[in-house]
């Protein structure tokens, strides 16, 4: 325990020495974020910086507020009645809760993949084409076909569906549906992709494919992933934030969090003693 403490102190002194190039300004900067549902506090006083072109995992036991925090980042909590968000969240230095911010523009830049695959009950093509179409990236024809094809390729689904783009998306397997949802999210070229337990409904093989995909996508996108699986967090993320009882307990590089946590609660969680 003593050894662990000293290692942790050393780690905290070293400023950002990961493989990722350190940027001056974080992609997303959150400070003093409080969220309450109808007066009941869900998360309190969260300060977290998300670095660009990296994967940040949010971990913690159920009900700890990690999904709530994730949904603050693209203001999906707006549609929940009685949900109140306080504090400051900035995307590239811009306050996303400032008056006049259009959630349509915000969500165009911060895409989201949900826990359960939720393709539209339309064709595979339509699922991917819908976003570019409503945002005016391409209305129809070859330009739209190109976006659909490249999005499906980047989501690793093209070879499986290229012959049946007009087939209903609901006929795909769970893993394929989730990759379709990822293709749908990246078709509008967001800066950030939020993933809310994207593999919780999938089997290990489909999970492995999604994880590979996340690893490839981080070159172009900033990814924030909520996960219940500590192994998954360790495998795919460069940075990890541990939430517990609505508080951000600890954040930092993934290897530090997993091998050398500062807080005894983090230690207990990552070693499997709580949660």
């Amino acid at each position: 325990m003593v050894i662990a403490m000293t290692q942790e102190m050393q780690a905290s002194k070293i400023p950002q020495t990961g493989e990722e190039p350190a940027t001056d300004r974080p992609k997303i900067h959150a400070s003093c974020v409080h969220v309450s549902y109808s007066g009941r506090s869900a998360i309190k006083n969260v300060d977290l910086d998300i670095r660009a072109n990296s994967v940040t995992a949010l971990i913690g036991p159920s009900g700890c507020g990690k999904t709530t925090f994730l949904r603050c980042l693209n203001r999906m909590n707006d549609i929940i009645d009685g949900c109140e968000v306080r504090g400051n969240i900035q995307l590239d230095g811009e306050d996303i809760y400032a008056p006049g911010v259009d959630t349509v523009v915000l969500r165009r830049r911060i895409g989201m993949v949900f826990q359960k695959p939720n393709p539209f009950p339309k064709s595979i093509y339509e699922n991917v084409a819908y976003g570019p179409r409503i945002h005016g990236l391409a209305s129809k024809g070859r330009a739209l076909d190109g976006i659909v094809e490249s999005s499906l390729k980047r989501a690793g689904l093209w070879d499986e569906v290229k012959d049946r783009l007009d087939a209903p998306a609901t006929g795909l397997s769970g893993g394929q549906q989730q990759r379709l949802c990822i293709a749908r999210a990246i078709a509008i070229e967001p800066d950030v992709i939020l993933m809310d337990e994207p593999c919780s409904a999938l089997d290990p093989i489909a999970t492995a494919r999604i994880e590979e995909l996340i690893d490839e996508l981080k070159q172009n996108f900033t990814i924030i992933i909520v996960t219940h699986s500590m192994q998954q967090a360790a495998r795919v993320s460069q940075y990890t934030a541990f939430f517990h009882m609505g508080e951000l307990v600890e954040e930092g590089e993934t290897k530090v969090i997993f091998t050398n946590p500062k807080d005894p609660r983090t230690q207990a969680y990552v070693t499997g003693r709580i949660g």
Partner: peptide, 23 residues
């Protein structure tokens, strides 16, 4: 209609009225 469909549409930046009338 499952709420996940609304969320899917809103999540890729559809406006409220687009999510309702398109999906």
């Amino acid at each position: 209609v499952p709420p996940s469909i609304r969320e899917a549409a809103l999540g890729i930046g559809a406006s409220h009225i687009q999510a309702v009338f398109h999906h």
